[in-house]
Design a protein around this nucleic acid. Sequence first.
DNA 1: CTGAAAGCGCTAACAT
DNA 2: ATGTTAGCGCTTTCAG
Lengths: 360, 360
Amino acid sequence: MPDHTRPPDKRATIYDVAAEADVSPSTVSRAFSRPSRVNSETAERIRRVAERLGYRTNPLARALTTSRTHMIALVIADITNPVYAEIVRGAQATAMNDEYTTLLIDAQESDRLERTAIERTMPTVDGIVLASSRISDSAIRMFAKQRPVVVLNRAIADVPCVVTDNPRGVRRAAEHLGELGHDHITYVAGPQASWPNGIRWRSLLEAGMELEIKVRQIGPFSPTIEGGERAAEELRSRPATAVLAFNDQMAIGLIRGLTRMGVDVPGDVSIVGFDNILAADIVTPGLTTVAAPLYAEGSAATRHLLSMIEGAPGHTGRPMVLPVRLVVRHSTAVRNLRPGRARPPGVRQRPTTTPAVHLS
Amino acid sequence: MPDHTRPPDKRATIYDVAAEADVSPSTVSRAFSRPSRVNSETAERIRRVAERLGYRTNPLARALTTSRTHMIALVIADITNPVYAEIVRGAQATAMNDEYTTLLIDAQESDRLERTAIERTMPTVDGIVLASSRISDSAIRMFAKQRPVVVLNRAIADVPCVVTDNPRGVRRAAEHLGELGHDHITYVAGPQASWPNGIRWRSLLEAGMELEIKVRQIGPFSPTIEGGERAAEELRSRPATAVLAFNDQMAIGLIRGLTRMGVDVPGDVSIVGFDNILAADIVTPGLTTVAAPLYAEGSAATRHLLSMIEGAPGHTGRPMVLPVRLVVRHSTAVRNLRPGRARPPGVRQRPTTTPAVHLS
DNA sequence: CTGAAAGCGCTAACAT
DNA sequence: ATGTTAGCGCTTTCAG
């Protein structure tokens, strides 16, 4: 039963080591400086002594003089959303590789919360990765003036950005639906504050133009399963045969909502999502979706941030764009021309055991 | 295009404010001390001046003298596992409420990784919550000597613990299966380093005793969907009619694996999971599972940690135990007495639209 | 390569 | 209630 009433036990300081090794404190300091440029015999001896004393350099004290904490913050929009897990993994791995600690912050889809969290964290970190930030461009630029910032899933002038190829993803989805005979696609919108939401809709408009597919939008809805279920309700009064959802969670909500209402997916309506989260492969029918290289996103953004922290200029030209691919599962099928009736023979049915096909 | 080559811009210090407000630095310090015990006129004026100068107290410098960073670490076993999302939410909320910042660490189910991450983080935080830790009891006790530590989902003598009522959860699951006519339950084990895994198995042994249900164990498997699929393979050579899986992910993997092999769930085999993650409600058939109050776990552990940091003794007697409940969905059904044949009439079929029932 | 001295920004005794 | 004086543990000039 440890007693934590008073400050936790005193650790050995640089002075203790200095005394023990019979050198000056600054020599000890140098033996632990990073990058360790000292390899003299003395340094070796000092390190041994330190080891024996259980000395660890105090990061706080170091930070006070160097103004480098070797910590970075990673702000994500919603820890509940599985997309971020892989992004976090990617970010953590590259950070850890450079001996940086990652401070994860969950903004809970809240503008206000995100802001105050960033403000509070800013002074303790060397830089920040903003993944799917919900705060304004100007606020982000403000932050970027104080510390290196890299933005993920969003494009902002003058701030380094990493995005996925949304236009191409949407285009592939539209082509896929077009090939199945759909001449009308409904976009089910996510949060308005979400940058990908905007570009996906605009990309769909464009793709619709070129492919001669009519498009429309409903929403916005919350980017969750529940949001998708609500969208399904709305779809009741404004039927569709092909739907592109802002993300997988909404797509899954749609599948559930529609199925519950007696609408057959993909028989009556085809659904495409975004992200390729794990659940996309679990839901019935399996969700056709636009997959992004999540892990790579996290690591690319972090790598960039670290290089900026080390003094690199920060690549603020065009955003860095990562490729996407369409994963075809079973939530999309040939358009059913006679709704409510048996499907015409020869038309593709929902397969049950065919493995997912990965395109592009 | 900000230039981050040199340390980020200098912020106003306590001295700047002191000079501007024409008081001594310590007076300024007092005006910002926590809890703000000063309400004099001067303090008010100082705060205004500070506001105007954009002064923010430097947490690092403060930490150096107070040895309190107002940060706590939350270590989770695997960020990929949705269980932790709610726990994190609960922890963050109560931490934020006391103006503490939460440092989230993903151990990626790795003993080694978890250790080094904790070691590196320890000096920068005021305390640590270990959620589903995979490191040894002795290692945890070591850490607990250096900083306040609260352990979640695990019971260790001399360290404050928060656990869920695993025995009761298992018992409820066993009773449920028993009522459905099952006289034999197979436990599909998760990681051996996982404390809940051990206690769940032991609880099942006990429950089996009392309820006169035979039990056996297979595994261990990785606590993931993939692990569950592998378990399904193994089940092929050692058939079962009722399975209790270590967690929902494995249970889902089992459902998928078995279904793919042509085994009907719940017709041929009933499956119960643990955790009640979102996907449990998405998979077909919906997963019957033992639900834990995730959010409450996170907040209870954190609240306890914070009180320890503030000087409370740390409740190291019996662990604090949180209640669980059985959520019955459609992955469990009356035992099929004639496998491979049609079910006897009158026996419960898998319903498709009945809402989930929450018991206990 | 090493030592001496000064100070990062703040807080914590002491005084007044 | 405010000011004065020392540091917290480390890095960093600047000399030797």
